[in-house]
């Protein structure tokens, strides 16, 4: 008898507690939804909505880099390769190569903190899918040129955040990006 009563009691409790839960769920019908449709149905592009300190893919400004290698020494996984050579005639230091392997980078920000000249910094770009992992090695030096020689007390002229890396990302993923825009426009005309 006791067991039978407990059996029906349990059923009663189940119905009661489940309806308590459903009441909470029901109340969500009248709350503001927070879901944002993917991809980015937002007023602004998502990269512009990220907070100030957001650590995205690294970018390097060749006009500011002095080739001091402080960043590559700080990097725990050695994902930065810098090649600086001295020109025998003019005695100038030439920056030949500045490669960041984004496939290796763990976005810790130690290199950015080490750089005294604001040459290397985090952009807010975070989407970097490629079909081949070697394409993630980005060389930020387009033409080997003498390294920057900043004067003391002079503030560096910073380019807008992300403007450097965006170009490389567009290069890296150019075929895929073009294709998708083609199909989009094709879809509209139909």
């Amino acid at each position: 008898m006791g067991q039978l009563a407990e059996y029906f009691n349990a059923i009663g409790r189940t119905i009661l507690t489940c309806s308590d839960g459903l009441a909470v769920t029901f109340s969500h019908l009248f709350r503001k939804p927070i879901t944002i449709q993917y991809p980015d149905r937002t007023a602004k592009p998502l990269t512009e909505m990220l907070p100030e300190r957001s650590r995205g893919i690294l970018e390097m400004d060749q006009e500011l880099c002095t080739g001091c290698s402080l960043c590559s020494k700080q990097c725990p996984i050695n994902c930065i390769t810098i090649d600086v050579q001295k020109n025998a005639e003019t005695k100038e230091r030439i920056l030949n190569k500045f490669v960041i392997d984004i496939g290796k980078c763990m976005f810790c920000g130690l290199c950015v903190e080490a750089c005294k000249f604001s040459a290397i910094r985090h952009s807010k770009e975070f989407e970097g899918t490629v079909s081949d992992v070697n394409r993630l090695k980005i060389n930020f030096v387009e033409q080997p040129a003498p390294v920057a020689k900043p004067k003391k007390g002079e503030d560096p002229v910073l380019k807008p955040v992300g403007s450097i890396i965006r170009k490389y990302l567009a290069d890296q993923w150019a075929p895929a990006a073009n294709k998708s825009s083609d199909t989009n426009s094709g879809g509209k005309s139909e």
């Binding site: 927070i34 990220l50 300190r53 976005f107 810790c108 920000g109």
Partner: peptide, 22 residues
């Protein structure tokens, strides 16, 4: 998970990353 999302946003505003904070 919705509440965690808000915390992740707060932490991202604080230190720049959502999961690997450093």
């Amino acid at each position: 998970l919705r509440e965690r999302e808000t915390i992740n946003d707060l932490i991202e505003a604080l230190c720049g990353q959502r999961v690997t904070h450093h």
